[in-house]
Design a protein around this nucleic acid. Structure first.
Length: 981
RNA sequence: GCAGGGGUACCCGAGUGGUCAAAGGGGGCGGGCUCAAGAUCCGCUGCAGAAUGCUUCGCAGGUUCGAAUCCUGCUCCCUGCACCA
């Protein structure tokens, strides 16, 4: 399937080889220069030739399965794709660096209506349309340098793939999970096909937004409800974001309750009603049926209410569900002229048909308890039906709530039978259920909102359902050895011919019955495309397998614990993820795999937004053409806000153009640094340019190699310590997919730190080389091309793609080295601040700085206080006594200062706690090491002077020299007294 | 209506009891370098101030010695579901 797109890129790409922002002047041509459009294709080719990203089962290595939701090939890649795959690629590359055997595949969800519609309007065949699109999106993917194992590339519209769709379908059939039945189904007139419940939003088609109507049709279902409990319970311990779990829970909608049988008076019929509140059984004052309920017509026949019922039923049938909910919030009902008997109380109650009862949920009938259900309450008031309280808000007292239903749990009261009053909540429900079951009048029952998955579609461009219809034998599966049932390629699509062209394709339709050998008609329905994506992640594990969907041993290796990281859009929170979870469980039960949950960690990447003209008062977003204009509706000047990139708003940014201008690595850096994966992000041209400059800056660091000649330098130890510490933080962040944080370290902090080291005296060539080598690996996940170029410039023969990095063990002195340096930074910061103030107080320019460091007794006292704090010493209570008998307290002249200092150390002020509690761990370590602060500052004096623009600096321990400006008393450990003169 | 997520400085965004006037980036401002521009490096970017104090994390209360962080109410925004018995 792989067809050498990379070579094509090489010959055809980047006519505008120079980036828009360009930094180097021409005469300095010996310097290394960052040229993304040269190095990116170069490394893409190198990776490909080295087969760096091909991975196979290797039981000796830990595996990491990194997966992105594969795209529907609609043409070129958009920013949403770029973001999705940049996240995945950086993690895949990171995991390889860490020694994991990484499975990172890519394919195309290539069945579906858009290709069919395109074929219809432009002529041609969906297959050609689809393949054209796949070619261009593949080219885009490769130009971004994503590290897929291209051998595994698949397209669901290929017979090599959908063969196994059909094979699995027959498995479903064998195990009784396939059902063909006539049912009222959702029909979209525009798409000319049925839709699954999940594909209907507000009674409109999820794809074309036209209205959905109900039709009675024979359709194919997958019995997903058989797994409803497991699908729900499994959510408790998988790594999905909370809101995705919430959506799935809502969708599955499990409710526990009871089915209660209400016998119809003077009839053999019984009305079964589902309720979650059996504890309110004694408050039932009527029963309501959905107007579609089959009993309605029979019961009402011959009563005075017959005509009235017909009117209501007609009205409901005519209205769409959408209208029933939104236009007619008013509850309406008709008495059906008959009574039912409450099975526990024996009481006779009227039967109504009500427009608010949903036919498809539960039994389509509800027991109405107006005192404890607001809907029933409204209905009862309207039709003047008795409202009877049977629950109390507090134990042993009379009900309080008036004028509306009390829907909470309460204590049963006023039961017409012994043994129930006083029971509460779940006890009450169980007691009623027990009574019902004992008397055969009902049972405990669990209902689901989840329905079976209607997966047949009356369309062409999908997997043919592998069945034939034989007049003698009925509906018969195609034997596995005859698979795949292929879609014909000689089909003509045109605007005039609507419907499914498979039906009129004689060759396709004509079939032989596998059972009797007689003439049969082939099934022309195809499968919902969500079927294709429900197991593609399994196929990827063994994508070249020609004999089975996948091999058991292979799948158990790659799918152990599920896909380790799955990245995609929130729009698939319900359908795709639910179907995929269902498939995995069902296939597990077929013995095909061990794993039960397909995705162990899901990351839903946020939207990519872009600035869009926006009218605050109309709350409307406008096309970017109107930027700076007045609102066409109200005339106010348009503001701006960020909105999802969309064609209709014209605020899209083309990845191709960005890549051409800045290179793929800059686009990746921008995407990954712009915000964390889950958060939304705003496109910003200036930020992209800034990131591009950052790339240049990082890359130009390589020039230091020529500039540094000494083998060792004063900052070698510091730089090494800083690198190790950065590396650890970076690992933690990347392990947890906090990519933004990781990139901040690898692409920003690392540069800042090196610049600091150079300013502070510089590093030697040996350490520099080592530093750049390790840094190269850190640059690799987010900006791999630049990192490889960097790495090869350093003279390393092994590509980063083949490199595994080792644990950077922290050096013993790292903490001290780093905290000493950061103490110096702090000193400079505060000196700079104080200098500014001093200048305002001084008539002449400030030229001298006298630094008085802490006297030893303060240092000793602080260490003592730190030790006490470790023992949970109560400074509030015992601190004063402690200091008063301390040796420093003997000298009366010092008592005031000692006491003041002690309080600052241990108690603090109103807002801040004592210093012993606010010091950083690194600072504590430094203080306890009794490092020589005076010497440390002295050795950096020149640097400090330069940094704050001062001519002369003097440093001594407070008390050992003149107390200039009386600043000695401010001197404390890590906080020397500063006097500017 | 129900459920989930949010509101942090000019903008984006990190931060979930004290080390927070609050990372990082963008933008803006100042300085070094330069004939100059760009790039780059350094700094400033709540108010006042010789090292401290004050005000600030949607609004209003509360808990606490101490709140951006915890609790309650309100408000606004986003997302999903929606007469589910």
């Amino acid at each position: 399937m792989y067809d050498g797109q990379v070579e094509q890129n090489l010959s055809t790409g980047f006519k505008n080889g120079r980036p828009m922002v360009h930094t180097e002047s021409e005469e300095r041509c010996t310097m290394v220069e960052y040229e993304p459009n040269t190095i990116e294709p170069k490394w893409q080719l190198a990776w490909k030739e080295a087969e760096s990203f091909d991975s196979d089962v290797d039981q000796s290595k830990p595996k990491f399965y990194c997966l992105e939701m594969f795209p529907y090939p609609s043409g070129h890649m958009h920013m949403g794709h770029v973001r999705n795959y940049s996240i995945g690629d950086s993690i895949a590359r990171y995991r390889r660096l860490r020694g994991f055997n990484v499975l990172y595949p890519m394919g195309y969800d290539s069945f579906g209506m858009p290709a069919e519609n395109a074929a219809r309007s432009k002529g041609g065949h969906p297959h050609d349309v689809t393949w054209g699109n796949i070619e261009s999106i593949r080219e885009d993917l490769q130009r971004m340098g994503f590290s897929y194992d291209w051998r595994r590339e698949l397209a669901t519209s290929n017979a090599e793939y959908y063969h196994w769709n059909q094979w699995i379908f027959l498995k479903f059939y064998e195990t009784g999970l396939v059902e063909r039945r006539t049912a009222p189904v959702n029909w979209c007139n525009d798409c000319e096909t049925v839709l699954a419940n999940e594909q209907v939003k507000n009674n409109r088609c999820w794809r074309c937004s036209s209205e959905v109507v109900q039709k009675e049709m024979a359709q194919w279902f997958l019995r997903m409800t058989a797994y409803a409990d497991e699908l729900l319970d499994g959510l408790d311990d998988i790594g999905f974001p909370e809101h995705v779990k919430a959506m799935q829970r809502n969708w599955i909608g499990r409710s526990h309750g009871a089915e209660i049988h209400f016998p119809v008076v003077d009839s053999d019929h019984t009305i079964a009603a589902f309720t979650t509140r059996p504890d309110t059984i004694f408050g039932v004052t009527f029963v309501t049926l959905s107007p579609e309920h089959p009993l309605c017509e029979e019961l009402v026949a011959g009563t005075e209410q017959e005509a009235e019922f017909q009117a209501l039923a007609d009205e409901c049938a005519k209205l769409t569900e959408f209208e029933r909910i939104n236009m007619l919030r008013e509850k309406k009902g008709v008495f059906l002229g008959r009574m039912a008997r409450n099975p526990l109380s024996g009481e006779e109650i009227p039967i109504y048909a009500g427009n608010f009862v949903v036919a498809s949920y539960g039994t389509g009938a509800v027991m109405a308890v107006p005192a404890h259900d607001q809907r029933d309450h409204d209905f009862a008031e309207k039709y003047d039906i008795q409202i009877r309280r049977v629950l109390s808000e507090s134990e042993g007292s009379e009900p309080i709530t008036e004028g509306k239903a009390f829907e909470g749990l309460g204590w049963m009261i006023g039961s017409s039978r012994e043994g129930f009053d006083g029971l509460y909540g779940d006890d009450a429900k169980q007691a009623v259920i027990r009574a019902l079951e004992a008397e055969g009048a009902g049972k405990g029952s669990t209902q689901f909102r989840l329905k079976d998955w209607l997966l047949s579609r009356q369309r062409f461009w999908g997997t043919p359902i592998p069945f034939v219809h034989c007049t003698k034998c009925g509906v018969i599966p195609v034997p596995k050895e005859d698979l795949p049932v292929r879609l014909p390629l000689d089909v003509v699509f045109s605007e005039e011919d609507s419907g499914n062209p498979l039906g009129s394709h004689t060759e396709f339709v004509q079939a032989i019955c596998p059972t009797c050998g007689g003439e049969a008609r082939r099934e022309t329905d195809t499968m919902d495309t969500f079927y294709d994506s429900s197991w593609y992640f399994l196929r990827f594990c063994d994508a070249m397998n020609e004999n089975a969907p996948y091999d058991r041993e292979t799948i158990d290796y790659w799918m152990e614990g599920g896909v380790d990281l799955y990245i995609g859009g929130i729009e698939h929170a319900i359908m795709h993820l639910l179907y995929a979870r269902f498939f995995t469980k069902a296939l597990r039960d077929f013995g095909m795999n061990k794993v039960s949950e397909p995705f162990s960690r899901l990351v839903c990447q946020g939207m990519v937004n872009a600035p869009t003209p926006y009218c605050t008062s109309c709350n409307v977003e406008h096309h970017v053409d109107l930027t700076g204009n007045d609102c066409p509706q109200c005339g106010e000047l348009l503001g701006s806000r960020s909105a999802k990139m969309s064609k209709s708003l014209g605020n899209t940014v083309s990845p191709e153009i960005m890549i051409e201008q800045f290179g793929a690595d800059t686009v990746r850096l921008f995407i990954l640094f712009g915000s964390n994966p889950e958060a939304g992000m705003d496109w910003s041209d200036s930020a992209v340019e800034a990131n591009h400059r950052q790339m240049h800056q990082i890359f130009s660091v390589l020039n230091l190699l020529d500039e540094v000649s000494d083998e060792v330098g004063p900052m070698d130890d510091w730089l090494a310590a800083k690198r190790r510490s950065n590396m650890h933080t970076w690992w933690d962040a990347m392990d947890d997919v906090r990519i933004r944080e990781g990139v901040m370290i690898s692409h920003f902090d690392m540069l800042t730190d090196l610049q600091w080291a150079m300013r502070r005296g510089g590093v030697g060539s040996k350490e520099l080389k080592k530093h750049l080598t390790v840094w190269g690996a850190m640059l690799y996940p987010a900006t791999p091309h630049m990192a490889e170029e960097w790495n090869s410039h350093l003279g390393n023969d092994t590509t980063l793609a083949e490199t595994i990095i080792n644990d950077p063990s922290i050096g013993d002195d790292d903490v001290l080295i780093l905290s000493e340096e950061s103490a110096l930074k702090d000193l400079i910061d505060s000196a700079r601040n104080v200098k500014g103030l001093a200048e305002r107080h001084s008539e002449k320019p400030v030229t001298r700085l006298v630094i008085q460091t802490t006297p030893n007794w303060k240092l000793d006292l602080l260490i003592e206080a730190l030790d006490l704090a470790d023992t949970e010493f109560d400074f509030m209570r015992e601190g004063t006594a402690f200091i008063q008998q301390h040796s420093t307290f003997v000298d009366e002249a010092m008592r005031g200062e000692v006491m003041q200092y002690w309080r600052a150390l241990t108690i603090g002020s109103k807002k801040t706690r004592g210093r012993v509690f606010t010091l950083r761990d690194t600072e504590k370590t430094l203080i306890r090491s009794k490092h020589n602060e005076t010497a440390s500052i002295k050795s950096a004096a020149l640097f400090i002077a330069e940094a704050i623009n001062i001519e002369d600096i003097e440093v001594y321990v407070a008390g050992e020299g003149e107390d200039v400006s009386g600043k000695a008393r401010f001197a404390a450990p890590l906080q020397p007294g500063l006097a500017f003169l």
